[in-house]
């Protein structure tokens, strides 16, 4: 059963569920945050339209900075604007370039200095599709999560992205927000809560805990609905990868004794890594990951790629069924 207290969309299991790109939620959230706080500025690397930074640019042209195709410079400029002048810069590009190309600047100028900069990685995951492996960011969670002070958020739909953007604007310190390109089913509603560091049990169950993030939260919910007669899945939207909501995850895992993680990312280093590391020291149980198994992607339609790598509903069901065979604690 879907957890009623989160007011999820009533259309979740309908074929014609409304779909909106997650990045649109970011664009709306940035604009809204910008209206509330005049210190917010936006920097972009020649991708203003596709990252939806354009909403902010059109309303606040004087607070928008076009950096050109120079991601390292964008991270450094932002750190300087924050440290030297109290600005709250949002820097956006594709995740393969930022944090992919400017990781050292993010590490030293932003995180080590504790600069109040928000890094927005758009077009993340394999669902970028036709652009191919070069442009499919599957490592960004790993490289941001290891940085001290960094908060890492992966919104599951456009509404959550808007709330997450406004939340990171208020949070003092470096944050990374991961966005996806494709139109994604809108599974939350205006009334669904969002808080940095809080995971939510969207579906209650008793046999296995399915922890998902990003657009695949939808796939995990659909998968659990399809197999509900045989397996009772507890599905958690873990939209904050760091700091991880230990309490919610442990409470669920102590009930079910098994975990499957679901993410559009390398299995190592991202959500699987975060969950497995935490459980290894707190409450060891078998953990199985849906995600990229240490491979690069390729060109194709998003649905073809998700199918090939077992990240769609069908693949998630297969992994859940396999995980059910693992022996758990008594």
């Amino acid at each position: 059963m879907l957890n009623k207290k989160f007011n999820l969309s009533k259309e979740i299991f309908r074929k014609n569920i409304k779909r909106v790109p997650i990045r649109v939620g970011y664009g709306e959230g940035l604009l809204e945050a910008g209206k509330k706080d005049k210190n917010i500025v936006a920097l972009c690397c020649d991708l203003t339209e596709s990252t939806k930074t354009s909403f902010f640019k059109n309303t606040f042209p004087d607070r928008f900075v076009e950096v050109g195709v120079a991601e390292q410079n964008m991270a450094g400029l932002a750190a300087g604007m924050a440290l030297g002048a109290g600005k709250i810069p949002f820097i956006s590009s594709y995740a393969v370039f930022s944090p992919g190309l400017n990781w050292s600047q993010i590490r030293v100028s932003i995180c080590y200095s504790n600069a109040n900069v928000k890094i927005i990685g758009a077009h993340a995951g394999i669902s970028v599709g036709p652009d191919g492996a070069t442009h499919q960011a599957l490592e960004d969670l790993a490289i941001t999560r290891v940085l001290p002070r960094m908060v890492v958020v992966v919104p599951c739909d456009s509404i959550e992205a808007r709330k997450a953007t406004m939340a990171v604007a208020k949070h003092k310190g470096p944050c990374y927000v991961r966005l996806a390109r494709e139109a994604t089913p809108v599974i939350t509603s205006e009334k669904t809560p969002f808080k940095i560091g809080k995971a939510h049990v969207y579906r209650e169950g008793k046999d296995i805990t399915v922890i998902a993030c990003g657009p695949l939260v939808y796939e995990a919910l659909v998968a659990s609905e399809k197999i509900k007669k045989n397996i009772s899945c507890e599905v958690i939207n873990c939209s904050t990868i760091k700091p991880l909501d230990k309490k919610t995850i442990l409470k669920s895992v102590k009930k079910t004794g098994r975990v499957v993680t679901v993410e559009e990312h390398q299995i190592t280093g991202g959500l699987f890594g975060a969950v497995a590391e935490m459980l290894a020291s707190e409450y060891p149980v078998p953990v199985t990951g849906v995600g990229m198994p240490d491979c690069f992607g390729e060109s194709g339609r998003p649905e073809e790629l998700l199918e090939k790598w077992g990240m769609n509903c069908k693949g998630i069901i297969k992994t859940i069924e396999k995980a059910m065979n693992f022996k758990t604690r008594d």
Partner: peptide, 29 residues
């Protein structure tokens, strides 16, 4: 490192990083 030393506003050392931060400050100014 800004958090260690009075009078130091940023962290730098990996080359090329500081100049960008200086330009960011100047732009904001």
């Amino acid at each position: 490192h800004n958090e260690s030393t009075p009078g130091v506003d940023t962290s730098s050392g990996p080359l090329g990083h500081g100049f960008a931060q200086a330009a960011g400050m100047a732009y904001a100014g």
